[in-house]
């Protein structure tokens, strides 16, 4: 199957190499293989595959990763705009709406 890729050059992902210890946690948690560890250092090898889920930043013990994480969901953006909040897929309050 051809690889599905989303828009180029939009991700807010940032890696601070000075803080990176090469522990490899980012490589483990990333669902889109954005990181690779080479020579004891994490490297962003597939930036455009990043979906900003935030797993890497949350699991970086050394604070070397920053990303403005959020749900990549148009409906959530619309709901957020209507309510004047951040994008939210707040389906819990609305029983008939499927989550994500």
């Amino acid at each position: 199957m051809s690889e599905l890729k989303y828009l180029k050059g939009v991700t807010t992902l940032k890696l601070n190499e000075d803080k990176c210890t090469g522990c490899g946690m980012c490589e483990i948690v990333c669902p889109h293989a954005v990181f690779e560890i080479t020579n004891g250092q994490a490297e962003i090898t597939d930036r455009d595959a990043c979906m900003e889920c935030g797993a890497c930043a949350l699991n970086c013990e050394f604070g070397a990763i920053e990303v403005e994480s959020g749900v990549g969901c148009a409906e959530a953006v619309i709901v957020g705009a209507v309510r004047g909040t951040d994008p939210t897929c707040d389906c819990c309050g609305e029983p008939e709406k499927p989550c994500c």
Binding site: L4, Y6, T11, C50, G70, C73, E75, C89
Partner: peptide, 15 residues
Amino acid sequence: TGASTYTSLSGVKKE
């Protein structure tokens, strides 16, 4: 986009 597995919020806002 919300049901897909690979879209980012920055990308969704841009499109």
